[in-house]
Write a protein that binds this DNA or RNA. Structure first.
Length: 733
DNA sequence: TTTCTGGGCCTACAT
DNA sequence: GGCCCAGAAA
């Protein structure tokens, strides 16, 4: 740790190096603050410097700061960067909404009637719990699909609606309400909380328990929320419960990058911040330090087609240019081949490393062609997401053992593994045991201790259930003595899981390998001397971990990643692939136009990841969901002016709009605007101009759009402005 | 009652 | 291409 005066010097230097707008944000310490932080605008620098400044200037104890980030990775980075500037960064509460909520709940759960060692249910577990409910209510799963009901329950929770207050207008609503009610009961009896509950429970705690509310408010005197555009209603209420009174709340975000609407995110939270906090200071970070102007122009021309957005435009003082490459390939394999060719070319001509490249796509299934081609061509790659490690069957099975050991009330985990490996215990027996547990309020181990008292339990299941009980009980006896890693070894040994997965083939091998990897990952928690706590932490981390969290910037390999997970990352060379109707934008949005703006933002996020070079590709034919179909270039491609696109490289065709008639059959007709004369370029980079209000300035760039000429002008006294040539009435000097 | 197999169905994004 | 369920065999 550096001496305080050295740190102070580093902090001073950092503040001096900021641009004026960034500095305004850093110097605003008390009261509400809204930072609109465009892509690549140096947001992290601003936030970490501001926190360090708060600690240094205001002598705020770091443990009274709460910073909510979007990923665990972002949290780690923030903590590390603040730590370089001031002491005590470890004391800050930095984490995702879910992590923060868990930490709060572990302290106050009992005040809510939730057991302290609650189990966190991931989506898989929620499905299993709801499946049980649907069976109990004898609902036809074809008429009431699990995923639809689950989505409706999740939506209700995100809006803080309980089963009692659930609005019922139709019979179907009533069915959903009943499912919701029963589902909550299953969770309660299992000592489980689903993802949404974590937030909801904290809200209920703060609303209903004055002592807790005052304590947490006092604790978090300064609150910062990153990616505020992606907060849902429950999270919004949570933030305001903590910070609404002292009003030391800083929120950061970019409405153009709001891409989690499907998860309940509500852009209005950021757009209405000024209404909630009229005294708020608002700062707009629009200078971009990442991309070339051509890339920013392409991004702007796409996002400007969204109607409800705060008007703004990113600009850069980078002078190098490289037009965006757009190419249409025959099918997804040739698309991948084209990308591989370009990677090989840039590696040899520009000395790029494999880690400089990223392939961004809409859906995980698109990674397949790239994995195949890169594998064949020996191009190293790193796949982020996809079939996730933590969601693999064998991993979930083993975790279910750990969860049952830790929380014997967890009937969902019990039902998952009681017959894994095969023990001749079928669904009829499982139902009987779970029903008995629900009926008597006992946990699974207690019920199994006295199986004669279980109604309708098939006799042949008695002996195997007894053996199962003994296995779990003996494992549970080691709870305080073994580290998580040792416990995993022990589980594998006692249950014979490896033998169960071994099928003599590569799949079995992979499964066993995954179990060993899990053991290795658990090793990170072995240093905690409190073994029970170590297990609890391990299980929490595992459930709330996201795939980007493990992503390290400095490793080699081309990154393959979805547009959702790539937010917050940047790459020198970006390939945004599958730019096709029904893919980007996704079919759901094409059928449901109110979802279109979010698809456009997704495209915007992808484009703005690129630093030096951007490739947009689409395929003429695409093989998806088991069949091959004709594809059409994305409307977003058509939104980028031809002048920004460079000629395609060898082996690729330029993106041509499909022939008339052909296209109309498949793609909804776009509303034709009244014809306008094409604009003429009147200004050029470097021109000196005079504006009636802003005075003298220099044109930094001029872009022809479909209807006008857009100018970025740096005025000698009024800073950088973006204007349309038609309206600006500039006089050339 | 449990286990195994084949056919039908649906298909993002993810804490 | 993966998941769920129905129906047959043990």
């Amino acid at each position: 740790m550096a001496a305080p005066e050295l740190q102070q010097a580093a902090l001073d230097e950092l503040i001096a190096s900021l641009n004026p707008v960034q500095r305004e944000a850093v110097m605003h310490l008390e009261g509400p603050l809204l930072i609109f932080a465009g892509a690549g605008s140096g947001k992290t620098r601003v936030l970490t410097t501001r926190i360090a400044n708060l600690i240094a200037q205001r002598k705020v104890w770091p443990d009274r700061l709460l910073a909510v980030t979007f990923t665990n990775k972002a949290a780690r980075e923030m903590r590390a960067r603040v730590g370089r500037l001031v002491d005590g960064a470890d004391e800050m509460w930095v984490g995702t909404f879910h992590h923060t909520a868990v930490r709060m709940l572990r302290r106050d759960a009992e005040r809510l009637g939730v057991p302290r060692s609650f189990t966190i249910f991931d989506e898989d577990d929620s499905r299993a719990a709801l499946k049980r409910v649907l069976d109990d209510l004898r609902l036809d799963p074809k008429k009431y699909p699990l995923s639809a009901i689950l989505a409706q329950i999740s939506k209700a929770k995100n809006e803080l609606v309980d089963p009692e207050t659930y609005q019922v207008d139709t019979y179907r609503d009533e069915i959903v309400r009943r499912c919701y009610e029963r589902y909550e009961k299953v969770l309660r009896q299992s000592g489980g909380l689903d993802f949404d509950d974590l937030i909801v429970k904290v809200v209920r705690l703060l609303q209903g328990d004055e002592e807790a509310r005052e304590r947490w408010r006092d604790r978090f005197r300064y609150v910062l929320v990153d990616e505020y555009q992606d907060t849902n209603h429950a999270q919004y209420v949570l933030v305001n419960l903590i910070a609404g009174e002292h009003r030391n709340l800083a929120v950061v975000g970019d409405d153009d990058q709001s891409i989690y609407g499907f998860r309940g995110a509500d852009v209005r939270n950021i757009l209405n911040f000024k209404k909630d906090y009229p005294e708020a200071k608002v700062v707009n970070l629009e200078q971009n330090y990442r991309s070339t102007q051509d890339i920013l122009d392409a991004a702007h021309n796409v996002i400007r087609n969204n109607e409800e957005r705060a008007p703004k435009r990113l600009w850069t003082d980078r002078l190098d240019r490289e037009r965006v490459q757009a190419a249409q390939l025959y099918n997804e394999v040739e698309e991948a081949e084209y990308v591989a060719d370009e990677i090989a070319r840039l590696r040899s001509t520009e000395g790029r490393r494999s880690g400089d490249f990223a392939v961004l796509y809409r859906i995980n299934a698109q990674s397949r062609a790239f994995e195949d081609v890169f594998g064949r061509r020996r191009i190293p790659y790193r796949l982020v997401g996809g079939i996730r490690f933590w969601e693999r069957r064998e991993v979930k099975d083993l975790l279910a053992y750990l969860r049952l050991i830790q929380n014997p009330a967890d009937t969902v985990s019990f039902a998952r593994i009681v017959n894994v490996p095969r023990r001749k215990i079928g669904p009829v027996s499982v139902d009987a045991v779970v029903a008995a547990a629900a009926e008597t309020g006992r946990d699974v181990l207690e019920v199994l201790a006295n199986p004669d008292a279980v109604p309708n339990l098939p006799k042949p299941a008695l002996a195997p259930l007894g053996r199962f009980r003994q296995e779990v009980a003996s494992l549970r006896a080691t709870l305080g003595a073994l580290t998580p890693g040792e416990l995993i070894e022990h589980v594998i040994e006692v249950t014979g899981l490896e033998g169960y997965y071994a099928d003599g083939g590569p799949q079995g091998e992979a499964r066993i390998e995954n179990l060993r990897e899990l053991r290795g990952l658990a090793g990170e928690f072995d240093s905690n001397p409190d073994r029970a706590e170590a297990l609890e932490t391990f299980l929490t981390e595992v459930t709330l971990r996201s795939d980007v969290d493990a992503y390290a910037e400095d490793e080699e390999g081309v990154t393959l990643i979805t547009l959702h997970m790539v937010k917050g990352l940047e790459f020198p060379v970006v390939f945004l692939v599958g730019m096709e109707e029904n893919l980007l934008p996704h079919r759901r949005a094409v059928e449901n136009p109110q979802e279109m703006p979010e698809e456009r933002r997704l495209c915007y996020v992808g484009i703005t990841r690129a630093q030096d070079r951007l490739y947009l590709t689409c395929s003429f034919k695409r093989h998806l969901y088991g069949r091959s179909e004709a594809s059409f270039p994305s409307r977003f491609l058509q939104e980028i002016p031809q002048g920004l696109l460079g000629p395609p490289r060898r082996g690729a065709a330029p993106v041509a709009p499909p022939r008339r008639g052909f296209r109309e059959r498949f793609v909804e007709r776009q509303v034709q605007a009244a014809p306008v004369p094409p604009p003429v370029q009147r200004y050029h980079e470097g021109d000196r101009v005079r504006h009636a209000k802003f005075g003298m300035g220099t044109v930094m760039k001029s872009t022809l759009t479909r209807t006008d000429e857009e100018l970025v002008v740096r005025f000698d006294d009024a800073g950088v402005r973006i204007m349309n040539a038609t309206y600006a009435q500039l006089a050339k000097q």
